[in-house]
């Protein structure tokens, strides 16, 4: 099993997301993450989908997606030539003992503190999946209160 990332350009209209999600469900492929946003043209959206499988799954996913009339383009981002990023927001409980450590970690990862008060801070980080994984695991010992991650978005170089 490997992780694959594909990007789709799709018609921006109701029902399209469920068509794509339905295709994955029906054929037993599991979506790891999915993110959607509109493109320049209000009629089109771009989706990035990350899923697990083998080479065959990847081939079938691409072919089946291409078959959907609302899918205009399928780009395989699994290659080395692609760049992908996700974003995480983390709320951490703070006190006088741990504040300094946390700020050091934030600096090391070049993350950003976007909210700060007596009891907690909220940190923002963008990066590829390994970086985000590393960051969240380091912070986990400091009492992470809440965490939210976007799916991955990607482009070919």
């Amino acid at each position: 099993m490997s992780r694959y990332t594909i990007a789709l350009v799709v018609n921006n209209q109701s029902g399209v997301l469920s068509k794509i999600a339905g295709l994955f469900t029906r054929r037993g492929y599991n979506i790891d993450s999915l993110s959607v946003g509109t493109l320049d043209s209000e009629f089109l959206s771009r989706m990035t989908i990350v899923f697990n499988g083998d080479e065959n799954t990847l081939e079938q996913v691409k072919k089946q997606l291409n078959k959907l009339i609302d899918v205009i383009k399928v780009v395989d981002l699994s290659k080395d030539l692609s760049i992908s990023r996700e974003l995480v927001l983390i709320k951490v409980d703070t006190n006088s003992n741990n504040k300094r450590d946390i700020i050091d970690i934030v600096d090391t990862f070049r993350a950003k503190i976007i909210s700060y008060n007596k009891k907690s801070i909220i940190i923002e980080l963008t990066g590829d999946k390994p970086k985000i994984d590393a960051f969240t695991s380091v912070l986990s010992s400091y009492g992470v209160k809440e965490l939210t991650r976007t799916g991955s978005v990607g482009l070919l170089r």
Partner: peptide, 8 residues
């Protein structure tokens, strides 16, 4: 005629 049939 259906590319998805090939290799499925």
């Amino acid at each position: 005629i259906d590319p998805a049939e090939v290799g499925k």
